[in-house]
Design a protein around this nucleic acid. Structure first.
Lengths: 336, 336
DNA sequence: CAGACATACGAAAGCGTTTTCGCCGCCTGC
DNA sequence: GCAGGCGGCGAAAACGCTTTCGTATGTCTG
């Protein structure tokens, strides 16, 4: 392994000079700096990250908090897509991605401890239980964080435009002639609240009111709870003509309830999802949904995080909203 | 941040003693060791990973090489599932997961350089172009590696039982009465070769021969190439009654070719995939496929990797085969 | 030409660990 | 009573880098 010392000897200068030259201090004449950079290149020098980290307390590492109780983890298509975009962007900017866990060398620890242990420069938080105490501790620590789909007071986050998304989707459904529109939404989170706002806004504008029984809760990304919720809707005296779901994946659960009831989509009943994951396109007929721009979300999250890392003083917290796009699909029929 | 020095002072011993006690050297009396461990706990001591790494050259980090030209990356459901299992297992064993890229602090580098830079104890390699020179260099380096779905000479790998899998799947198709069976396989890799072996074995056992034109190549996880390959099969004078595909996802590409030709599955033509990803179940009718045990694959890969890391002398290279399971689905009709 | 002031570089300390080697005191066996 | 051995511990070096501060030149000014 070639070190600064080797380069220093070869160039006939001190290690201090080498370090400064390589890190672009103005302190060194351009001539020597150039010579040093060149020999470093020739000798295939790679800095020792541990030594540098020990000295500077910066690791050029971005931690990723990405977990959920159900262990769906990376197979959650929506979050996997965001994470992938984040990874690509981080690599482009010279940061590495490391997963934060609850284990340090076998010992149980908090996320914050782990992030500190690894000297993460910042942490990207996605798909977590945001009310978790360990998560809160991390967010309110000295380590820069960016959250996805949830905003803490005065902390930066990236969200998709949930109000507008659900609003547009609902408006589309209305434009197809539907009046009896049900909504199987996710558990009570800030995202859900926003989607409900968008949903009701569209209804109000169109002068439509729906009975409270049309609004039922299930859990995000949970087939079974969505199936049950859907079933309850189907037994209602006045059955809705269209059901909006919390997410595309959950719709699969709903589908079994629908086919059990002998209803075919979209002839007997219309449906729409949310997220716009790959799977939505593979369904037949293709699912009507609102596509979140996962690529932009991941990318912007990392950009913001790096901005905070590199300008800790001047960088202001920001709630970044990423617009999405309606995907008409073919599961909302035109009626009347 | 509390350091060994703080603990040493509090306990009235030297830092050397603290270090040894915490790392379980026999050199220290059980009494002092216990006292030190206890105060360390009380003071919420977490070792500084950089300092330790600098000294020992071991990082308790497992690198993951996970990339492909097409940037599908983590959204590749099959590999995402393997990676997720790997992550869970690594965390359980006290290792952290870091993505290996081609960038070091903004500079372009080889995978090996990156892995060295981060002092990865080992690297898990999945979903890569295995003929890539950079990958080879990493595999033949001093860093322990485990590959997924591909074996290099004398290096450890985890594979699903491809011969048996394709064999069973084909046998199943034959048992349903099919004789004209086509195979749209992936590009020419070791995995593909094995699947072809399994495919032909089943045919031979049943005394069936298929024309060469029934065997066409497409690319794994590539909708378009699969669509084209399928199209070519459909124009054949004697159309196959069943088509096997390289993977579940690719079938989506094939499906558009089928519906363009006005063929419905499984009434007009039967199909089967490979992988058994979540998506295969969400299709209607559910796809007949052979499910690889991604959870076991990821888990075993990490276990093997850690075994190599911790017993570099005694650990022998091993090709680990993980059995899978036939998923009958409903896309292969019974004929004749 | 003296003094002031940049400019270019080096010596050395220090980041928090681990690990070697040696010291001290005690025990054991003769 | 003494040599030799051993268990328990500490001093100090080392890992590779950054960074402060000091020094030695050269350059400019009046």
């Amino acid at each position: 392994m070639v070190t600064v010392k080797d380069i220093a000897e070869k160039c006939g200068v001190s290690t201090a000079t080498v370090s400064k030259a390589l890190n672009g201090y103005g302190d060194i004449s351009e001539k020597t700096a150039e010579r040093i950079r060149k020999t470093a290149e020739e000798m295939h020098y790679t800095p020792n990250v541990a030594a540098r980290q020990l000295k500077t307390n910066a690791s050029h590492t971005i931690g990723v908090l990405f977990e959920d109780e159900t262990n769906v983890g990376l197979t959650h298509e929506f979050f996997a897509a965001i994470l992938n975009a984040a990874k690509v962007q981080a690599e482009k900017e010279g940061y590495d991605i490391l997963f934060i866990s609850r284990n340090i060398a076998g010992r149980r620890a908090s996320f914050l401890e782990h992030a500190r242990y690894r000297s993460c420069d910042g942490v990207l938080i996605a798909n977590m239980n945001y009310s978790n105490e360990d998560v809160r501790k991390l967010i309110y620590s000295e380590i820069p964080t960016v959250t996805i789909d949830y905003t803490y007071n005065d902390h930066s986050s990236v969200l998709s435009a949930n109000v507008e998304g659900e609003y547009e989707l609902t408006k589309y459904v209305i434009s197809r002639g539907h009046r009896k529109i049900a909504f199987v939404h996710g558990e009570n989170t800030s995202v859900t609240k926003k989607r409900l706002i968008g949903f009701y806004r569209a209804l109000t504008e169109a002068g439509i009111t729906v009975p409270d029984r049309y609004i039922v809760e299930s859990r995000y990304h949970d087939l079974e709870s969505c199936r049950v919720a859907t079933q309850s809707l189907l037994t209602l005296p006045e059955r809705p003509t269209c059901i909006l779901f919390s997410d595309d994946y959950s719709y699969i659960g709903a589908r079994s309830a629908l086919s059990e009831a002998g209803l075919s989509v979209p002839d007997d009943i219309s449906v729409a999802g949310y997220d716009g994951i790959e799977m939505a396109k593979t369904l037949y007929p293709p699912l009507t949904t609102f596509a979140q721009d996962t690529e932009a979300m991941g990318k912007r999250a990392i950009q913001k995080l790096i901005e905070i890392i590199e300008n800790p003083k001047t960088c202001r917290p920001e709630e970044i909203e990423i617009p999405g796009k309606l995907v008409p699909g073919a599961t909302v029929s035109r009626i009347r």
